[in-house]
Computed example of a mutant assay.
Amino acid sequence: MIVTEGLTKRFGRVTAVDGVDLAVPRGVRFGLLGPNGSGKTTLVRMLLGLVHPTSGTVRLLDRPMPRGAGAVLPRVGALVEGPAAWPHLSGRDNLRLLDAAGRGSRRRGRRDRVEEVLRRVGLGAVDRRPVRAYSLGMRQRLGIAAALLRGPELLLLDEPTNGLDPRGINDVRELLVELNAAGTTVVLSSHLLSEVEALCTRVGVMDRGRLVLTEDLDVLRAPTGRVLVRTPDPAAVVGLLDGQVVGRDGDELVVRGDDPAELNARLVAAGIAVTGLTAQRRSLEQVVLESTGAGSDQVDGGRT
C-alpha cells in the first residue's frame, strides 16, 4: 500500500526527513508517532506528492509518486495540517465543490454522497452557516468528511482529532475502525500516544526525521515475563517466592514468571490472599521513550 526507500527531505541545512524506509501493508490501521517537529507531516506530504523529496522514492498504491499522482490521488483520502475550506461557504457547499472538482466525479448522486459523509462524521444536522462560524472541532469533522468523499482505499490523516472533545475523539475512532473493517487502509499521524494505542494495529515511531521503530502493536506490548501481584500480605509473598520478587511498591509486587495462573494457584495454596494479578506489559509510552532521544524541539547541530 505504501513503500518508501531512503526517503529524505532537506530544507536548507535542516534535514526534516532522513532516509526513511517505510512499508505499510494493505488493510492495517497504522499509527505514525512522534513529537511535534519529528518529521511526520513532511513525510505525509511527500507520500501525497505535495512535497518533492530531496532523495529516495515513494510508491503509493503500487505507483511511483509524485509521477503517478493523477491515477493515485482519486483513490486516497487525506487530511494534512488541518482542514482547508472556503470560509464564506457552508460545509455542504464546500463538499459539493470538492466533489465536483474530483477527477471522474459525476453530478448524479452528488447530493447523496455529501449527505452521507456529513452524517458519518456527525455533521448531518448542520445548518447553512458559513464555515468561518464553525468551531475548531466542526472544521475538523468537515475535513474528515472531505477525505471520505471518494470512498478512498487509503486514508492519510494528520492529527485528525485535533480540536475534538472526548466524545468527538471516540466518534472518529469508531468511524475509522468501521472504515478499516470495510477494507480501507488507515494511516494516522499523531503525537498523542493514547490516540494511536486505542486505534492502531501497527505503529511507526519517528525521532528527529528518522523512522526508529516499526512494529505491530501487539508485539510491542507483549508480556515482559513478569507478573504484577497485589496482596494485603506482601511479606508473605516475598517469603514464599524468595528471589522471584524483583520489585515492590506498597501492596503491589513485581514477580518473575510467565504464567499468572500458575503463580496465582501457588499463592492461594499457601494461604496468601491475592487481590490482583496481571501479566506485566510495556506501555506504548515506554516503547516510544526507549526508542527516541531528546525531544525534537531541542536544538541539535542545525536541526530543530
Rank of each mutant, 00 (worst) to 15 (best):
V121H: 08
L179W: 04
V227I: 15
M138R: 07
V219Q: 13
T231M: 07
A133T: 15
S194W: 05
V172P: 07
A236P: 13
T161G: 13
T214G: 09
A147R: 00
D207Y: 02
E159C: 01
E116V: 10
Q140K: 05
N162L: 14
R167T: 14
L155K: 01
P234A: 06
L193N: 10
S194V: 06
R139P: 05
L199W: 09
G163V: 02
N162P: 11
S135M: 02
L156Y: 01
R202L: 05
L149T: 02
V229Q: 01
T184D: 01
L149G: 02
E116W: 11
L136E: 12
L123K: 13
L176Q: 08
A145C: 09
L156A: 01
A125S: 15
L199H: 07
V203I: 14
P152M: 10
I169Y: 02
V121R: 05
A145Q: 08
R221Y: 00
E174C: 11
G204N: 10
A222D: 11
V177H: 12
V238S: 10
L148H: 08
Y134M: 13
R119M: 15
N170K: 13
L155E: 00
R173D: 12
R173S: 12
G209Q: 00
N170Y: 13
A147F: 03
T224A: 10
D158T: 05
T161P: 12
V196C: 02
L136G: 12
R120Q: 10
V172Y: 08
R173Y: 13
C200H: 04
G239T: 10
L123N: 13
C200R: 03
V187Y: 01
P166H: 04
P160V: 07
P232S: 06
D127M: 06
R132K: 15
V187T: 02
G225M: 10
G183H: 13
S135N: 04
G168D: 10
E159V: 00
L155R: 01
R221L: 15
R132C: 11
L192F: 11
P234H: 09
G239R: 14
L164P: 02
V205P: 01
L142N: 00
V227T: 14
R202S: 08
N180F: 12
C200E: 01
N162W: 12
A147L: 03
E197T: 06
H191P: 00
D158Q: 04
P223Y: 06
E174S: 15
L118Y: 14
T184A: 12
R128T: 12
T161V: 15
R202C: 05
L154A: 03
V131W: 06
R119G: 15
V126M: 13
R226S: 14
I144L: 15
R129S: 14
T201C: 01
L156C: 03
E174A: 15
A236E: 14
E115M: 12
D171H: 14
